[in-house]
């Protein structure tokens, strides 16, 4: 039975697309046939982050409108077997996400894939509601910052009231908290909320902590999901998060400031 995962946050710019790309890639690397869908109609970004923007012919909206079939629109990843990207339209807007069309596409994808990862747009309007509607499981991406935490809280409320599972009174959507852009040094200085603060406010189980890292920007600019970069702390943290999602036990890393950073900085300076 396929599992539909929504990557959502309420607030924009917290790392939803980076997370959707990393999680989908990580699941496919573990041998699960996975598709990642871009629900951010009009602000097509997922294909850039996945590095397949030059291969987009048909998109999600074409399939919803019946102008193309799924096979024509799905883009097979060149690096990871079993990973597919389902891009969205850059020219249309969220209203193009018609209920019946999306239902039909999701049902088809459920038949073909083990995991369907939905990259939600920001906000709490139609686009975000459509992205979370079919979810069995949700990854709530939050930055350690009060406005992001509050928006996440709002979205968690929506998952509990507006999702298909809520409407049909089925088992509630499984919730996972992913704390991104975490900078332990700044937490220590009191400039950022700590892991415990965020957990306390949201009371949702923690899936992982992704440290703030320059490698994330580089990865998204070059179209390589950061999870494929073994040198990147963020990439390793995403790998841990996917492993936990798959049921493995892994200790939380990147909670405390890195001890070696001082020495590394010192040597780095000395070398330059």
């Amino acid at each position: 039975m396929a599992k539909v995962i929504v990557v959502t946050s309420g607030k924009g710019g917290v790392g939803k697309t980076t997370t959707a790309a990393a999680v989908a890639t990580g699941l496919a690397m573990r041998g699960h046939k996975t598709v990642v869908i871009d629900f951010d109609v009009g602000l097509r970004n997922l294909d850039l982050v996945m590095g397949c923007e030059r291969r987009v012919v048909f998109d999600f909206i074409n399939v919803i409108n019946g102008d193309a079939n799924l096979q024509q629109a799905l883009i097979r990843d060149k690096r990871i077997d079993k990973l597919y990207i389902f891009p969205t339209s850059q020219t249309r807007d969220k209203e193009a996400l018609k209920r019946e069309g999306v239902d039909r596409v999701m049902n088809e994808l459920r038949k073909d894939f083990e995991y369907v990862v939905c990259d939600s747009p920001a906000g709490i309007e139609h686009g975000a509601m459509t992205a979370l509607y079919h979810a069995d499981s949700a990854i709530i991406v939050t930055n350690p910052e009060v406005s992001s935490v509050r928006d996440s809280d709002r979205i968690i409320g929506m998952l509990a009231s507006k999702s298909r599972r809520a409407e049909k009174r089925e088992k509630p959507v499984e919730e996972h908290l992913l704390l991104t852009r975490y900078a332990p040094g700044r937490v220590k200085k009191g400039e950022m909320l700590s892991v415990d603060d965020v957990k306390e406010i949201l009371s949702v189980p923690l899936l992982g902590i992704i440290p703030e890292s320059e490698t994330v920007l580089k990865a998204s600019n070059t179209g390589v999901p950061v999870i494929l970069d073994p040198e990147s702390p963020a990439g390793r943290a995403y790998d841990d998060a996917v492993a936990r999602f798959a049921g493995e036990q892994r200790e939380m890393r990147f909670v405390l400031p890195e001890r070696r950073s001082f020495l590394r900085g010192w040597f780095g300076r000395a070398a330059s």
Partner: peptide, 8 residues
């Protein structure tokens, strides 16, 4: 019994 979330 459930947390009352922001906006509810």
């Amino acid at each position: 019994m459930q947390p009352v979330r922001s906006g509810t």
